[in-house]
Structure formats: structure tokens, C-alpha cells
Simulated assay, not measured.
Amino acid sequence: MDIVNYLLRFAFDAIISLLIIRVWLQLVRADFYHPLSQFVVKVTNPVVVPFRRIIPGFAGIDIATIVIAFIFATLKYSVIPFLMGGPFDPLAATYFGGLFLIKQTGFLLFMCMIIMAVMSWVVQGYNPTMVILQQLTQPILAPIRRIIPPIGGLDLSIIAAFLLLNVLNMFIGKFVPYWHTLF
């Protein structure tokens, strides 16, 4: 049963992550023709397009994709505990699903910044993957860079963003006494 639990968690996490990335790419107006953007759009279109006909966007925000991500997050905390012999609690699943969306968004931001940091040491010159990662992280890192400018060519904004993300994670963790076991 552990294998089924693992595979279900992986599937839900992958779908939710792709949906979050889709919204994020739209919000930052990332390059639509980049292979990563194309992949995310093509993989999520079968789920998103039917809902877009019912749920319109608002102020440039793809509400349909956010709703679908929330539904999948809620399903994750309904289906997996039920299959593991736990009770069916839709209210708790909705609560944990919402918290999971916030946590997963922070985790994806963290991963983008880690990849950017490693690539900055390895890649020289123009790289399209680095460009899209910069587009994704710029809205978060730009305000931090205004407060903490690069010192001696070293960009400390990523470290400050890591600290802020960890503080946010700890703050959200206070709302769930057994946070580490859920996520």
C-alpha cells in the first residue's frame, strides 16, 4: 500500500505543480514560445480548456486553472487518506488543499532559485532556460534587490528570499500541528 500512496502523491503533486507553473507563467508574462512554456500548456490544456469555458479569467489571472489546482489539492487530501483507511473529511481536505497550494508555490519558487543559482555558476552567456527562470523569479527577487543590492558581484537576494520562504513555511506550519507528516 506504501507504493500506491507514493505513486498517488507523486501524481497529484506533479499535476498541481504543472497547474501552478501555468498560472505563474501567465502572471509574469513569460515567453510563450519557450519549450518549458509549451510543455506546461500542452500538458495542462486537456484539464484547463473545458473549465475555461465555464470559469472566466479576471484581471489577467487564470481563475479556471487556480480552481482546478485547488480541486486537485483537495482531492489529494480526500483520496489518499481514504485509501489508506482514514476517515473522509471534506472540510479538512479543503483546508489542507489550500495550505498545500501555498506551500507548493513556495517550493516551486525555491526550486527555481536553486536551479538559477547553480546555473549561474555553470552557464556562461545567454541561456534560454536561465531567461525563463529569471522571468519567473524576477517579481519576488526585484524588491529584495532594491533593499539588498549585489555586493562585490554576489547576489544575496536569493539567500534573503530563501529565508523569507522558510519563515513563511514556519508560519503556515503553525496552523497544522503535524505539518511535516502531511506534506
Rank of each mutant, 00 (worst) to 15 (best):
L163R: 04
A142G: 02
P81A: 10
F72K: 07
P177S: 11
T137D: 03
M111S: 11
P81Y: 07
P35D: 06
D31H: 00
R52P: 09
N45W: 10
Q104C: 11
V67F: 03
T94S: 13
F58V: 03
P87W: 15
H180C: 14
Y95P: 05
A92F: 02
L36K: 02
L25C: 10
A160V: 11
R53A: 02
L18S: 14
L101Q: 10
I55Q: 00
F175S: 01
Y95H: 03
F32Y: 04
L25D: 13
P87T: 15
A73D: 14
V40M: 12
G153D: 11
L165V: 00
V4W: 07
Q104R: 13
L18P: 15
G106W: 00
P35K: 01
S157L: 04
G98Y: 13
M119T: 06
A117H: 00
M119L: 02
M170W: 11
V67Y: 01
A73Y: 08
D62R: 03
G86T: 09
R53K: 13
I71T: 02
G153W: 13
L154N: 08
P177E: 06
A11F: 06
F72M: 07
Y178H: 01
P56I: 12
G106S: 07
Y178N: 07
T105K: 00
Y178I: 05
P87M: 14
S37W: 05
M130H: 01
L168H: 10
M130C: 01
M116W: 03
P35C: 05
I20D: 12
G106C: 00
L36Q: 07
Y95Q: 08
A14M: 11
F183R: 15
I172R: 09
D2H: 03
V176W: 00
P50F: 09
P177R: 09
I158D: 13
G97K: 09
I114Y: 04
G125F: 02
S120D: 15
K174C: 05
G60Q: 12
W121H: 09
V122Y: 10
M170Y: 11
I54C: 14
N5Y: 05
L156W: 04
V131L: 08
L19Q: 11
L99S: 09
V43P: 14
L156D: 06
L27Q: 09
L168E: 08
A117D: 05
F110M: 05
S37E: 06
G85C: 04
R22D: 04
L109W: 03
I16C: 13
P149S: 13
A30T: 12
N166E: 01
F100Y: 08
S120Q: 10
A73E: 12
I148L: 06
L108E: 14
T94I: 13
I132W: 00
P46I: 02
